[in-house]
Simulated scan of single mutants.
Amino acid sequence: MRRFQLFLAATLFSCPAWAFDPGMQMRGANFSDACTRATESWISFCNGYVQATVDSLSVGDGVCIPNGATRTDLVTAVERTITASSQLKSINSFEAVRLAMRQAFPCP
């Protein structure tokens, strides 16, 4: 009986279906909605989300943020780009932000 319990516990705790829950992912539409709220906590959330995305960019991503651009400039451009695109609103918000940045701040 002890072996069965150990086997059952090992099986249940190693199940990859529980390691990834798509319901926990935010879509571009959720990002757009959050970033149009005029409360300090949501403004801070959007600033942090965009900063995290900027921090994840690499040279090959095709995003060239101009010198002097503020975080407000970035959040505003990204939010407007996502809000105007049904495609960006329907995908994962990290990808939507990255693609919106590429569209708003393309490299020459």
Rank of each mutant, 00 (worst) to 15 (best):
R3D: 12
S58M: 15
E79H: 11
L99M: 09
A38W: 15
L12Y: 07
N30Q: 13
N30R: 14
I65T: 03
R27L: 00
F45E: 13
T81S: 09
F7L: 13
A77K: 03
L99C: 01
S90G: 11
K89F: 06
F94G: 09
T53V: 08
L57P: 01
G62P: 07
V78R: 00
R98C: 09
A104W: 12
C107V: 06
F105T: 05
I91T: 02
Q103C: 08
P16V: 03
A52P: 06
A38C: 12
N92W: 12
P22V: 08
I82S: 00
Q25G: 07
A84K: 01
V97P: 01
F20D: 12
R3Q: 10
Q51V: 12
M101C: 02
Q5W: 15
T11C: 15
S85L: 09
P22R: 06
C46D: 04
Q5A: 14
S93E: 08
D55R: 02
D73Y: 06
A19L: 14
P106T: 07
R80D: 07
A77E: 01
F7Y: 10
G28N: 02
R3W: 04
F7Q: 11
P16W: 07
L57Q: 00
Q25R: 05
R102F: 08
S93I: 02
W42F: 08
L74F: 01
R98A: 13
L99R: 02
D55F: 11
D21R: 02
G62Q: 05
P66F: 12
S58P: 02
V54A: 05
S86N: 09
R71S: 12
D33L: 10
S44A: 13
G62L: 02
P106Q: 12
